[in-house]
Amino acid sequence: MRFKQVNDLLNYLVTVHQTIRDYYVKMEEESCQERSKLLLQFMQQCEDEACNNIRAFQDDASKAVLDTWSDAVFDADPLAPLANLEIHPYLGSDEIVSLATDVAQALIDQLERLVEEAPTDGTHETLENIITSEKNRLHKLVHSTHRLDDM
Rank of each mutant, 00 (worst) to 15 (best):
T19D: 00
I20W: 02
R21M: 14
R21K: 04
Y23Q: 08
Y24N: 05
Y24R: 00
E28F: 07
E29N: 05
S31H: 10
S31K: 03
S31D: 04
C32N: 06
R35E: 13
K37S: 02
L39P: 01
L40V: 08
M43I: 07
M43R: 04
M43W: 02
Q45S: 08
E47L: 03
E49R: 14
A50D: 11
C51S: 14
C51L: 05
N52V: 08
I54Y: 09
F57Y: 04
D59F: 09
D59L: 10
D60F: 14
S62M: 09
S62F: 12
K63V: 14
A64H: 12
V65L: 15
D67V: 05
T68Y: 00
W69A: 05
S70Q: 09
S70H: 08
V73G: 10
F74R: 10
D75Y: 14
D75I: 12
D75G: 09
D75K: 14
A76K: 06
D77V: 10
D77S: 10
A80Q: 15
L82P: 00
L82W: 01
N84E: 10
N84P: 03
E86F: 01
E86D: 10
H88S: 12
G92F: 08
G92L: 07
S93N: 11
D94R: 06
D94K: 11
E95R: 13
E95M: 10
V97D: 14
V97R: 15
L99I: 15
L99C: 06
L99W: 12
A100C: 14
A100L: 02
T101I: 11
D102C: 06
V103M: 14
V103Q: 07
A104H: 07
A104K: 09
Q105F: 15
